[in-house]
Computed example of a mutant assay.
Amino acid sequence: VEQQRILGNTAPSIYDLRNLFQVNVEEGRHLWAMVYLLHAYFGREGREEAEQLLKRNSGDLDAPRILGAFNEATTDWLQFFMFTYFTDRDGKYQLGTLKESAFDPLARTCQFMLKEEAHHMFVGVTGVQRTVERTAELMAEHQTRDILAYGGIPLDIIQKYLNFQYSVSLDLFGSEQSTNAGNYYTAGLKGRWMEPRRRDDHVLIGATREMSYVEDGELRTRTVPLLNALNLDLRDEYAADCAAGVKRWNQVLEAAGVTERLILPHEGFNRKVGVYAGHHVSPTGEVLDEATWAARVADWLPGDADRAAVASLMVPEYEYGKFAGWIAPPRTGINDQPVEFDYVHLLEEGLA
């Protein structure tokens, strides 16, 4: 909510404004749900921790949010759509492990929160898809990749935003090897994604898996205990799910006759947490030295000029049924209502 609070000023449509409000309301309710559990079941320590939640603020220099992705500025609606696709999808997978918890109040709460996360991810996948659709239309119409002058977001900038949000969302899964994650699992505080569908003994004694890492400037793999690699197990499930959305966006490009494609960057790209932290890995998985990374990073991550270019297109459109020029309208409205439905009632200028 803190990150997205200014987006109403530049909403591309009333339809999108309504979706933003629902996301914010539900995110606020998620905070309430977690604070309720702390107050109801954890005594004084729970109350003190709940108070600390209110003292931390996104991007605050003295008391920032604990997780890095929640301190990044949501500068525009493309960033918002990428956030709701990639970062809320992390929420889906974290909640999916906690709904398996033996602590029943937590399990039941997370099961309910998952239903609301589904809407947030819908906003993300369709928001990016509609942006890509409009970009493809303008590329085909003007026979150029540089569509900024025609009111569209160039595909290379969309790719940079994708690279950024995917990489900071991967960091939310924590270190690939984690004793804490193994202890939580063993104690029954959390499970794995789709735990009932797993065909192992759910104890994981002796179970192993492969893990990639960087050594001597090369990507290598080693075998690690699965019990200590549960964060990596969850991250792999997440990455496969993210790839499905990118495939959907690429189908839009293909249908429009555009030859370029969006990609998910390598898992080691732009990482600040885990085995890739401190290393430079390109989106295609090439380990780079500091100088090469510095020379090429502007091609892969959005810079100030890219964000300023996108911001220049963020002109609000508040007429019912109308949409800003950089995004395509949705196929259908919300709750079987028409796209031009008055989802949000705006006060006339001058009224309090």
Results as ranks from 00 to 15, higher is better:
residue 5 R to T: 03
residue 5 R to E: 04
residue 7 L to E: 02
residue 9 N to V: 07
residue 10 T to P: 02
residue 15 Y to C: 03
residue 16 D to F: 03
residue 18 R to W: 15
residue 19 N to Q: 15
residue 20 L to T: 04
residue 20 L to N: 02
residue 20 L to F: 02
residue 25 V to Q: 11
residue 27 E to S: 10
residue 30 H to D: 06
residue 30 H to I: 06
residue 35 V to P: 01
residue 37 L to P: 02
residue 41 Y to Q: 05
residue 41 Y to W: 11
residue 42 F to K: 07
residue 48 E to S: 11
residue 48 E to C: 08
residue 50 A to L: 09
residue 50 A to I: 06
residue 50 A to Y: 10
residue 51 E to C: 05
residue 53 L to I: 12
residue 57 N to H: 13
residue 59 G to N: 13
residue 67 L to H: 14
residue 68 G to I: 04
residue 68 G to P: 06
residue 69 A to S: 11
residue 71 N to R: 14
residue 73 A to T: 13
residue 77 W to Q: 00
residue 77 W to S: 06
residue 79 Q to M: 14
residue 83 F to M: 03
residue 86 F to V: 05
residue 86 F to T: 00
residue 91 G to M: 05
residue 94 Q to W: 06
residue 97 T to H: 05
residue 98 L to W: 13
residue 104 D to Y: 07
residue 115 K to C: 04
residue 117 E to K: 06
residue 119 H to G: 09
residue 120 H to D: 04
residue 125 V to N: 13
residue 126 T to M: 08
residue 130 R to V: 04
residue 134 R to N: 14
residue 135 T to F: 07
residue 137 E to D: 10
residue 142 H to M: 08
residue 147 I to W: 04
residue 147 I to A: 00
residue 150 Y to C: 00
residue 152 G to L: 05
residue 156 D to K: 09
residue 158 I to N: 04
residue 165 Q to F: 15
residue 167 S to C: 06
residue 168 V to N: 00
residue 171 D to A: 02
residue 171 D to Q: 03
residue 179 T to D: 14
residue 182 G to D: 01
residue 191 G to R: 00
residue 193 W to I: 11
residue 201 D to R: 06
residue 206 G to P: 09
residue 209 R to G: 03
residue 215 E to H: 14
residue 217 G to L: 07
residue 222 R to K: 15
residue 223 T to L: 08
residue 225 P to H: 11
residue 228 N to D: 12
residue 228 N to A: 04
residue 229 A to K: 08
residue 230 L to F: 07
residue 233 D to W: 13
residue 235 R to M: 15
residue 240 A to V: 11
residue 243 A to C: 08
residue 246 V to R: 05
residue 249 W to Y: 13
residue 253 L to Y: 04
residue 253 L to H: 11
residue 257 G to F: 09
residue 268 G to D: 01
residue 271 R to W: 08
residue 275 V to R: 12
residue 276 Y to D: 06
residue 276 Y to R: 00
residue 277 A to G: 04
residue 277 A to V: 03
residue 278 G to M: 00
residue 283 P to L: 05
residue 283 P to W: 05
residue 283 P to S: 07
residue 287 V to Q: 13
residue 287 V to F: 14
residue 289 D to H: 10
residue 295 A to Y: 08
residue 295 A to K: 15
residue 298 A to D: 15
residue 299 D to V: 03
residue 301 L to F: 05
residue 310 V to C: 10
residue 310 V to I: 10
residue 310 V to T: 05
residue 311 A to R: 15
residue 312 S to P: 00
residue 314 M to Q: 15
residue 315 V to F: 09
residue 315 V to E: 13
residue 315 V to R: 10
residue 318 Y to K: 09
residue 322 K to I: 01
residue 323 F to V: 07
residue 324 A to K: 00
residue 326 W to M: 01
residue 327 I to P: 02
residue 330 P to S: 00
residue 330 P to T: 03
residue 332 T to K: 14
residue 333 G to H: 10
residue 337 Q to H: 10
residue 338 P to N: 08
residue 339 V to L: 02
residue 341 F to M: 07
residue 348 E to P: 05
residue 348 E to L: 12
residue 351 L to M: 12
